[in-house]
Design a protein around this nucleic acid. Sequence first.
DNA 1: TAAAAATACTCCATAGGTATTTTAT
DNA 2: ATAAAATACCTATGGAGTATTTTTA
Lengths: 292, 292
Amino acid sequence: MNIRDLQYLVAVYELNSFSKAAQRCYVSQPTLSGQLKKLETGLGARLIERSTRKILFTRLGEKVVVQAREILRLVDHIKDLAQETDDPMAGDIHLGLIPTIGPFLLPKIVPKIGERYPQMKLFLYELQTDKLIRKLLEGELDAIVLAKLDWAYPIGEIPLYTEKLKLAISSSDPLASRKRAVKLSVLDGRSVLMLEDGHCLRDQAMGVCFSAGAKEDQRFQATSLDTLLHMVATGAGTTLVPELACEKNLEGITFLNFSAPAPSRDIILAMRNNSVRKPALEQLATLISNSI
Amino acid sequence: MNIRDLQYLVAVYELNSFSKAAQRCYVSQPTLSGQLKKLETGLGARLIERSTRKILFTRLGEKVVVQAREILRLVDHIKDLAQETDDPMAGDIHLGLIPTIGPFLLPKIVPKIGERYPQMKLFLYELQTDKLIRKLLEGELDAIVLAKLDWAYPIGEIPLYTEKLKLAISSSDPLASRKRAVKLSVLDGRSVLMLEDGHCLRDQAMGVCFSAGAKEDQRFQATSLDTLLHMVATGAGTTLVPELACEKNLEGITFLNFSAPAPSRDIILAMRNNSVRKPALEQLATLISNSI
DNA sequence: TAAAAATACTCCATAGGTATTTTAT
DNA sequence: ATAAAATACCTATGGAGTATTTTTA
């Protein structure tokens, strides 16, 4: 069986004539006759009682026409679905971000995306790196925004921006009065507040602290950057914060730059190597880069 | 697009592998790959993100799979419908009969049909000849039982039986005492009760009466053979009745045979020349002939 | 007789096959 | 290194064409 044959059958049903049906289907009458005969032999049953004067559908033929019409409707629906996605920027994009980026990056880009690509429907997810990568590979996400990884995953990456880490300290701390950048060595011997396990920022901060001679403050583990900052504000300690998260003016916190070589992390947009949304994602990456 | 391609697509979706899908579909892997690529270019959109390790359907691909499954279900349904009609004696037969035959013939054949062809579903219609022929040609009826026509219709005929016409007279009529056949000439000068217009038996009886010198009794026109017989029983007159209708023993009526050449009518089973049910109808005709 | 479907054939597009290469983990 | 999909190329089925015949009202 064959979708074209079903079109022929329905055309004959509607026009009550093989020749007219052939015209409508833009094929010759013998072609249409032949295909319908094949359809009948394929099914092992007659669908049409033919004579040169009158076309009469068998009861089976009429039943088949009902099914055929439904099939043709569904086929058209498939074509419609495919048509809709002709614009590469149209359709759904499921974007994941790590929690230490999402709340600070999204306000900068979501309005612009809505403005520039109104056809795009953006679905946002905030998850830690390992979950993001799993969902990306499973196809649940189209792209993820995260800090560049050391491990090689089968994913394509587009660099978005590099953000420095700043020192967040209580404004009452003697260091807070410094207007210029501080050296990493100011961390030496300090206890630093950290995020809970699973956040990549925690790993990055731990690395910095290790090389600077600082230790993790074992008494607390924050579940979010916001919590961490509140703890700093109440004088509970000090911590390392990515640049983007320092833009809010928070009571009681002073952000200090580190002098070169300042610790930093590379933020990337990652996708599956063979993602069908690559064209859209590349444009999205450009928009994000330009927004920082 | 192509039904086979949709099978390929669904197979890949279910088995998560091109090669396994190809096996299930009994084609080679390159064939299946090629067809799916064609399907995609035909639709102008990607359905599957391919890599040598992982198969991932795009959101469009998943939507198409949903539609494709429904289409394949309907295609199977068409095949099922066709399968069901493999037995020529199975399925519906819509049979029409003229009113002067139906009530007398049906009791003789319906039980036998039910016994011999339990797969057959018989639908019965009682209509006058012209309506029977119209409905036959329109396809509403598969076959009709009627008296042989003089006019040539584009229909095929199978003779069923020939039935003589008998004289029905009141038992109180002097003629009723005759045990032997009577000559047609006994009708000479009599008024004969007739069915209303449209019944072919009326036309046949009128013909007989005309050549025998009898006239129609203008005072009554019966709507059915039963009514006609009741009128004869009450002494209202005499009439001509087909053989089959004389089998009931009715109070007050005597049926007399005519001596040769006795008037008669040929009962036939008629169908469209190219009827797809011809094989079944031929068997049905044999059964009817044998039942008389 | 005339209109419409069926038949007979030819052609070529394409579904399908085999052998091989490329790709990605 | 290996498993799986893609590519290259060949074959053959069958969908479509033209010319003609058959059918039937």
